[in-house]
């Protein structure tokens, strides 16, 4: 067996391991009854996705995934859970929902699955022809975000700012003159 083939097999094995952990954690998010366990499984899922990015040589994106999702978003989720926590955390997730809700859940899930499967099936997945990831991915990302797509970037920033201001107003109320 040539070295390249062995390397490819190793890559495949690593990918399968990452995929098992990520998918397992994602299933845990959905199926575990304790909401804190859900949140911790979500962290593991985020880390697994980051690992996939690392395997694709996209180190910067992977680290953003860890910092923003595993480090900050999940912490915000945990924070929200702890702020609204009831006495018995095991009862935070409602036991068995009503029949109507279950039917609605199954319907929406089925719709989503069908859409995703169709999308994946009908998309042509062109294989990358270049050799490996670019050398300076961070610089190229910066040029794209702050050069070609600066309007979209700034618009997203303004959107977030509006959301923050809205959240503050909702939380504190408007002062009457």
């Amino acid at each position: 067996m040539s070295t390249a083939a062995a390397n490819l097999q190793l890559q495949d094995a690593v990918f399968v391991m990452i995929a098992i952990v990520t998918t397992g954690a994602a299933l845990g998010v959905v199926f575990l009854r304790n909401i804190v366990h859900n949140a911790l499984c979500l962290v593991l899922t985020f880390l697994g996705v980051a690992a996939v990015y690392f395997q694709l040589n996209a180190g910067f994106i992977g680290l953003v995934q860890i910092l923003v999702y595993a480090g900050a978003i999940s912490v915000l989720i945990i924070f929200a859970i702890m702020l609204v926590m009831d006495k018995e955390i095991n009862q935070t997730n409602l036991p068995i929902p009503s029949l109507g809700r279950r039917i609605a859940g199954v319907y929406i899930t089925a719709l989503l699955v069908i859409t995703l499967v169709l999308a994946i099936y009908f998309t042509a997945w062109p294989l990358a022809t270049g050799a490996g990831a670019p050398f300076d991915a961070v610089g190229m990302l910066a040029e794209l975000m702050l050069g070609d797509y600066v309007i979209a970037f700034e618009a997203a920033a303004v959107l977030l700012l509006v959301a923050v201001v809205g959240a503050v107003i909702l939380a504190k109320g408007v002062e009457k003159q």
Binding site: L63, I66, L67, G71
Partner: peptide
């Protein structure tokens, strides 16, 4: 890398 790995210790 240092910053983002460091952020995990809170979890």
């Amino acid at each position: 890398y240092f910053i983002s790995i460091g952020s995990l210790s809170t979890i």
